[in-house]
Design a binder for these strands. Sequence first.
DNA 1: GTGGTCTAGACCACT
DNA 2: GTGGTCTAGACCACG
Lengths: 135, 135, 135, 135
Amino acid sequence: MLIVVDPHSDIPVYKQLMDQIRLLVASGALAAGDELPSTRSLSAELGVNPMTVSKAFSLLEREEIVERRPGRPLVVKGTDEAGRRERRREALRRGLDPAVRVARQLGFAPGEALALFAELLGASRDESGPEEDQP
Amino acid sequence: MLIVVDPHSDIPVYKQLMDQIRLLVASGALAAGDELPSTRSLSAELGVNPMTVSKAFSLLEREEIVERRPGRPLVVKGTDEAGRRERRREALRRGLDPAVRVARQLGFAPGEALALFAELLGASRDESGPEEDQP
Amino acid sequence: MLIVVDPHSDIPVYKQLMDQIRLLVASGALAAGDELPSTRSLSAELGVNPMTVSKAFSLLEREEIVERRPGRPLVVKGTDEAGRRERRREALRRGLDPAVRVARQLGFAPGEALALFAELLGASRDESGPEEDQP
Amino acid sequence: MLIVVDPHSDIPVYKQLMDQIRLLVASGALAAGDELPSTRSLSAELGVNPMTVSKAFSLLEREEIVERRPGRPLVVKGTDEAGRRERRREALRRGLDPAVRVARQLGFAPGEALALFAELLGASRDESGPEEDQP
DNA sequence: GTGGTCTAGACCACT
DNA sequence: GTGGTCTAGACCACG
């Protein structure tokens, strides 16, 4: 599980967990039916209290992203492909919204904002090593 | 003063105030030498606790964005044009950063993310009324 | 065996089993001397853990509702007719109790609560068919 | 606040709290805009841990029954009169549902079930007084 | 083994 | 003052 939390962030740990798992699901890295790590193992791995993990899990369950089966680890809830694509796009939109607001408030022309966004997207490509080749 | 705060947001009110004033300054809507409204009047206008406004002002003062003159309202601190432009761009970059991270985590190709961003930027033009002309 | 369990309910599976078997016995659908399905077959049919079925059976045995005979399936224990009727009424009372409490707490007049109850009882006759008219 | 919790119930305390507050709101005992007791005072009064109360409050907030304002006690969220009446009826329906199911499974005729319900509703009127005779 | 719940006590952020 | 969060550790219920 590629989850990292920053205990110093001012975003609560449980919310960081929720965000990341939501993204893992939306991106397909976690597919329907996949099991999540157990509360205890994940809490040990991340060095946070089991209750914190448990809280994140419970809230994800209420969001219907994850499903609980008594005595078993949680599993990712099933969604059809169309729903998943919609969610993925929706997730991106939510991520983009604040940027749109800021760009407007700063009075940037769309072209300028897009140019910087493109630049940042490009730069991030080789952030943590090359990901195959793109000429 | 075009400031709105949402008491239900999970971003603290004082931080919402700071963000918006910073943006107003970065965008030039508030120019060097302009006076800010008084703590009392702003708090009354927004319906928030005066201490909250005061806290925002103090922190902005510490950031050297505004200047306090005893017995007088705060004024926007002067900056040269180059510095202002740099700040404005930097503000946009900060707003864009989370979007970049999300887009990558969701596995979007740069083109897709840019397309949605462009769409949102366009759509927002006539969101809450027309903003003069755009050729 | 008309037993269904919902693994997502917050009522434990073993308790759902007990409740339903108790009702089957109280209603006469399971008569004294009738055999219950084997632990293995019932668990397979319902898709639940055999230990869960076994636990339900053991507790029912302790309640003297069924009887265990070594090497043979469980049988429903005998009860005289008077006892059975008393139990049946008692079961209904237990089912009604929470409804009474809720109706009082909501401040419903008895007549209103009865009217809704009557409506629900009527509607439930043909469960998932049309419920507009009922002569 | 007329809230009591039974720590020995197998219903979790936080859920007992949620149920009761929901009922208080649905019944109108708590009106829109009313403040709930503070987490600490309620926890002290009930003899439960503040976190337990806090958990109940948080979940009620997610259910949009109650509203949080930073630094202030929670308030009951506003609903129009029609919505409130609908909720009240819905709450009763939820309370009645299990009773309907049980009555059907036990094979009671609607009339019989209604008679017992009526009896229980009547008896509960004077709850903790004598209940032998009622002419 | 799993998750759910609760306690006790602490710290922080916000108003 | 308020609520939010987290830790540490315990117990229980379920499978």
